[in-house]
Nucleic acid binder design. Structure first.
Lengths: 245, 245
DNA sequence: CGACGTGTTGATCTCTCTCAATTAGAGTGG
DNA sequence: CCACTCTAATTGAGAGAGATCAACACGTCG
């Protein structure tokens, strides 16, 4: 039996879940099998693993990745507290992605059919999960745009902004004193499709220009405007458009 | 009122939907608003458009994409009959992706709250949608691995294999006489994060080596083994793994 | 103390981009 | 029927962003 009630789950602080009824909380808790704690740089899910359970990240940072047989690795998304893991490969036959931790981390493990039970017994929760899955995809979409079409400088600016936002949202002060940033330069490189050396050089260039500061596992934003301009974030003049059909 | 009953929808041939009850069919049909037909190279959804309805692609090919303000474009996924469109941006505040057609195409338009109604009134359908959304993400994951870590040759081999498989699955003969292939080289380039010129040169190189043949809007696979080897598909010796925890 | 992981920097090398020019249809209008 | 225009494909040449190779600094740890 889980010792920590789901009332403390970081997922509950997400906008979608604030209206969660106590019935739904009980439901979720009943599907929860146990918790797992891992140290930093550990593997939660191996690539190619089948029949993976559904997880939720409670504490710490992690990432999803794929590798080629010669070792080249691409990080797909970084995972922060509150993120789902494993919906992507549920019932999937194709070789899935791996999941490694960046820091010490605690995961919530659900039984294999949790996804279905959740849908069956609470359409609201089911809907929320669809929404979260879709939102997760949009993160990958953003990364794909970066990796496919942005220069190294632009990619790094983008990553710093996005991760800063996500990390800052999780802490009370909103990141005024910087945020925890447990990635090594190798992780950044693998997340952006760059080499380690070039990542280092580009990172230093931006830092020397005073756009950010990275030290002791913390990220400080020094010139968000300039970073956003570099990343072409909101930089376009496209106005919101109404549906065409 | 829709004139074509949903019994003919290409979605119904997907494994997940074969068990669909007639009740569920009626439900889907009741949420359907109408159909739209577009010619080739037309826009269904503008980038940055808000409040997009939910669509289904009935006939033809299309693609989702994002662009930077200076015009650089990244194609996120190619859409074939049976694919969902718009789940990603449902209720999303961030600027979404655009959707353009590659060929003449017919779409099914659902009312805005269709996603919720589907979940509410049929958990089975809701579950299937979550699954399809997750599956769609895995397509983007694959592309991200390609764009981030594969060489131009490897990327093109990968794309040819994946699109051939999807297209062949839709036709009765399974693609023995080749499959329809309506992409221009510009689309391939934008889908793989390459320049048009380099895409052309690489494509010709593979074709001259006898790996494939591309003519008159059709794709013929000449040496799938070699292409798969190039793409590092199943090329790894990773055996399926059991769950770690 | 030596081994190791991470970060840093300089020096090449090369894959891919950009620029340019040509060819081959498919329309279109006179 | 024939110029004229457009788009897509093709090929060569030169340029450049980023990869690879190599060395070194620094802190941690057994």
């Amino acid at each position: 039996m889980p010792d920590v009630p789901c009332a403390n789950c970081p997922l509950r602080t997400l906008p979608l879940f604030i209206e969660q009824s106590s019935d739904e909380q009980v439901l979720v808790q009943s599907l929860k099998k146990r918790e797992v704690s891992l140290k930093a740089d550990a593997t939660l899910v191996h690539e190619g693993q089948t029949d993976t359970p559904l997880y939720t990240l409670l504490e710490g940072w992690a990432f999803r990745y794929k590798t080629l047989s010669d070792g080249r690795r691409q990080i797909l998304t970084f995972l922060l507290p509150g993120d789902f893991i494993g919906v992507q490969q549920k019932m999937g036959d194709s070789a899935a992605h791996g999941v490694d931790t960046l820091t010490e981390a605690k995961f919530c493990v659900f039984q294999r059919d949790a996804l279905w039970e959740l849908h069956r017994r609470s359409p609201t929760m089911g809907f929320n999960i669809t929404w979260l899955t879709a939102h997760e995809e949009s993160l990958v979409d953003d990364t794909l745009l970066s990796v496919g079409r942005r220069s190294a400088e632009e990619r790094i600016a983008m990553l710093l902004i996005l991760l800063f936002k996500r990390a800052a949202a999780l802490q009370a002060d909103g990141g005024v004193q910087g945020v925890r940033f447990p990635l090594t330069q190798q992780h950044i490189a693998d997340g952006l499709g760059l080499s380690l050396v070039h990542t280092n050089k580009t990172l230093r260039k931006l830092e020397r220009r005073g756009l950010h500061h990275l030290a002791d596992g913390r990220l400080y934003m020094r010139d968000v405007k300039a970073l956003a301009r570099l990343a072409d974030l909101y930089g376009d003049g496209r106005p919101p458009q109404r549906p065409l059909v």
